[in-house]
Simulated scan of single mutants.
Amino acid sequence: MLGFTNIVGNLSPLPELVLWRDPVARSGEEAMAVDEALLEWGRKPVLRAYRWAEPTVTYGYFDEEATARAIFPGEELHFVRRWTGGGIVDHRQDIPFTLAMHRKGEKERPSSAVLYRWIHGALARVLRDCGVECVMLDGDAPDGGRACFSSPVTSDLVLPGGEKLAGGGQRRVRGGVLHQGSIQNCLLPSGWDELL
């Protein structure tokens, strides 16, 4: 039996966070290039809310396109590799977002596990404020394969019945951390990103 938690951890909010509602619907390659640029050239933490220009599936840095295509055989989809890890994500009905956090004189960064809990804890509060009940997983759900939303893992957000709502992949580099997230299986009002 999986446990659930609502505990976020002891991280303080980012002192400054720029919200960028990207007005351009982008191809998968463009979206990934923008995220990489935000991390490499940015000076302040940025939350980017965006949308896709075409039906897109992304696969993590350690996956192969053939694996992603095998999950969606015969469908007219655009496949693109993410710069982060994580599973294979069908973005046809998701709310994608990116958080690029830069290191400014920090000697130690929180671990990936702590950052996931911090980001998803903040997102859980936003979802609840928008009327979406959710819980954070304490452990991995039964493995549904490489399809991200069939395989909830520790710190993912799920509906009380276990259906996955939000997950993400991270990439850590010397200058900071990139978190690419996806919210699915719910409707959110405009302004959810400002709450986050």
Results as ranks from 00 to 15, higher is better:
1 M>P: 12
78 H>C: 03
165 L>H: 04
173 V>N: 03
188 L>W: 03
53 A>Q: 08
109 R>G: 11
1 M>D: 14
137 L>V: 09
149 F>G: 04
120 H>P: 07
131 G>F: 02
29 E>G: 14
196 L>A: 12
44 K>A: 05
91 H>Q: 11
95 I>W: 10
5 T>V: 10
178 L>P: 05
106 E>P: 03
11 L>H: 02
191 G>V: 04
57 V>P: 07
127 L>M: 13
116 Y>A: 07
137 L>H: 10
72 F>A: 10
169 G>N: 01
59 Y>F: 15
108 E>D: 11
99 L>C: 11
134 C>K: 11
148 C>T: 13
80 V>M: 03
49 A>D: 13
150 S>F: 11
109 R>M: 13
96 P>S: 05
154 T>A: 13
137 L>R: 04
158 V>A: 15
35 D>E: 02
55 P>M: 02
155 S>C: 09
167 G>Y: 07
160 P>M: 02
52 W>V: 02
149 F>H: 08
139 G>W: 01
106 E>L: 13
131 G>D: 10
170 Q>V: 02
111 S>W: 04
90 D>E: 04
122 A>C: 12
90 D>C: 01
86 G>D: 08
1 M>H: 12
36 E>G: 01
154 T>G: 08
27 S>A: 07
131 G>A: 07
196 L>P: 09
29 E>M: 13
54 E>M: 06
110 P>A: 13
83 W>V: 14
32 M>F: 05
29 E>Y: 10
37 A>P: 00
184 Q>V: 15
115 L>D: 11
35 D>H: 00
108 E>M: 09
163 E>C: 04
72 F>L: 12
170 Q>I: 05
60 G>M: 02
34 V>N: 00
93 Q>G: 12
112 S>G: 12
99 L>D: 03
154 T>E: 14
151 S>L: 12
48 R>L: 06
5 T>H: 12
183 I>F: 10
13 P>L: 02
52 W>N: 09
166 A>H: 07
93 Q>T: 13
42 G>A: 06
81 R>D: 04
10 N>V: 10
166 A>E: 06
182 S>R: 03
135 V>I: 06
83 W>F: 14
162 G>R: 14
35 D>Q: 01
92 R>Q: 04
31 A>G: 15
51 R>H: 15
34 V>Y: 05
108 E>C: 08
126 V>K: 14
101 M>W: 00
137 L>E: 07
118 W>P: 04
13 P>C: 01
